[in-house]
């Protein structure tokens, strides 16, 4: 009885969380005139998706988002891994460097948006995916460094000691032992960085143009003077959360996996 009650409570909580997402998905599948009806599925159509790609150039936006999010992680990851390792093992820069890394995450992005815009306009990096990638890499770097530092700290130092007495250099121990052992953490950090870039709106809006608009910017632009095109928005949102759902599945798998699985007792 107790179990049944707690399950009932949990089911209710899940419904509360998941219902809006399901309703958005439902709205993306019904004709625009049915968007606000209370019927669950009056008729099913893919017209909203078709319109999004045919009329709104959503494919371009989607591709932009993917390019920028993936590239920013690829650029950041080696730097974040090495910095995080240095922080974790050698206490490079001491407490101050750690604090500065964390502090950079506390600045409101708006404070950086205008100076970045001025700087990038001078460099000709506005309205370019390169510019956006650089910004996202810069935003990701301290965040991923912080996360990876935690993962590296959890790896027993003896592993490197073993590798180094076995004949590896410090770099060799990092490359052949620490990195493979930290792989789950690096994957998880990469996915988090991807999500961060994928969802970013402010810089994409300020630095981007029509060709370089990312998914969040494109979705915002569906809010027109003729009202919100809710069926298109619903279709866009449904597509936008797709990579996040895949990422969430990934990250769960890697975060659950132990870090030093069986290397030390």
């Amino acid at each position: 009885m107790r179990r049944a009650l707690s399950h009932l409570g949990l089911i209710l909580a899940v419904v509360i969380v998941i219902f809006p997402i399901l309703w958005v998905f439902r709205t993306s599948l019904v004709p625009p005139q049915e968007s606000y009806s209370t019927t669950i599925l009056p008729s099913v159509t893919l017209d909203n998706y078709r319109a999004l790609f045919a009329e709104k150039n959503f494919g371009r936006n989607y591709l932009n988002s993917l390019i920028v999010a993936i590239l920013s992680v690829v650029v950041t990851m080696p730097l974040a891994a090495m910095t995080g390792y240095a922080f974790a093992r050698f206490r490079t820069g001491g407490g101050l460097a750690r604090f500065a890394t964390l502090a950079s995450q506390m600045l409101p992005p708006v404070a950086l948006a205008l100076p970045t815009f001025m700087l990038f306009r001078g460099l000709g990096l506005t309205n370019s995916l390169t510019g956006l990638t650089i910004v996202y890499a810069a935003i990701n770097l301290p965040f991923l460094t912080w996360i990876l530092m935690g993962f590296f700290e959890a790896i027993p130092e003896d592993l490197e000691g073993a590798a180094m007495t076995d004949g590896a250099t410090r770099w060799g121990a990092f490359w052949r032992v620490v990195l493979p052992v930290a792989a789950p953490g690096i994957m998880a950090a990469g996915v988090l960085g991807f999500i961060l870039s994928w969802n970013e709106f402010l810089f994409a809006l300020i630095l981007g143009g029509s060709n370089t608009a990312t998914v969040p910017v494109a979705l915002a632009s569906l809010q027109t003077s003729n009202g919100v095109q809710i069926s298109n928005v619903a279709a866009g949102v449904s597509l936008a959360i797709l990579p996040l759902m895949i990422a969430a599945k990934f990250i769960q798998k890697y975060l659950v996996e132990g870090l030093s699985f069986g290397s030390v007792k």
């Binding site: 027993p156 592993l159 007495t165 052992v181 290397s263």
Partner: peptide, 20 residues
């Protein structure tokens, strides 16, 4: 000298086996 140049082998309390 660096550990790798000393030709010693260490058995650690934690064993420190490479888990991968």
């Amino acid at each position: 000298l660096a550990p790798r140049e000393r030709n010693v082998a260490v058995v650690f309390q934690s064993y420190a086996l490479y888990p991968h």
